[in-house]
């Protein structure tokens, strides 16, 4: 039971803890949006993706194998956590988000909802 409360506590706390903003690319094409985010050092099991209403939250914890007793002498990545929140627009289908994490790069694909897909209007020539 103590383990459970510890887990609940840690997820609750992460919202308020300071985090780094991962650099991101967002590309939109006809069928949807592709998002790439740099999350170096985040393994699959430490990545947390959430879609709540129209909010997409990307959160990841850095896990490096640090030797015991290592003293840091220079740090450009000063926090072990990334977080970034995006607001999705209504035409995106949040239920069909697919994600892939490879070598520290997260690739998200958010398709557009069927009704928002562009349709070519045929012009009738009389």
């Amino acid at each position: 039971m103590s383990e459970n409360t510890a887990v609940a506590k840690s997820t609750e706390n992460t919202r308020n803890e300071a985090a780094l903003l991962p650099p991101t690319d967002v590309i939109e094409d006809i069928d949807g949006i592709t998002l790439y985010a740099d999350l170096p050092g985040v393994p699959k099991d430490k990545l947390n993706l959430q879609v709540e209403a129209d909010t997409l939250t990307i959160e990841g914890e850095v896990s490096l194998d640090l030797p015991e007793g290592m003293e840091s002498s220079h740090a450009e990545v000063g926090l072990p956590r990334y977080r970034r929140v995006f607001t999705l627009s209504r035409e995106l289908d949040a239920g069909k988000v697919s994600a892939e994490l490879k070598e520290g790069v997260l690739k998200l694909r958010i398709p557009k909802a069927e009704h928002a897909q562009p349709r070519r209007v045929e012009i009738q020539v009389a």
């Binding site: 170096p40 220079h74 740090a75």
Partner: peptide, 25 residues
């Protein structure tokens, strides 16, 4: 001086450890 990849550097009495944050390569 901020460059790519970001570097974190540390050491122990036995070794020096350098971490280069270079995703997607």
């Amino acid at each position: 001086t901020r460059g790519f990849p970001a570097l974190n550097i540390g050491g122990t009495p036995k070794a020096v450890d350098i971490y280069a944050f270079a995703p997607g390569i």
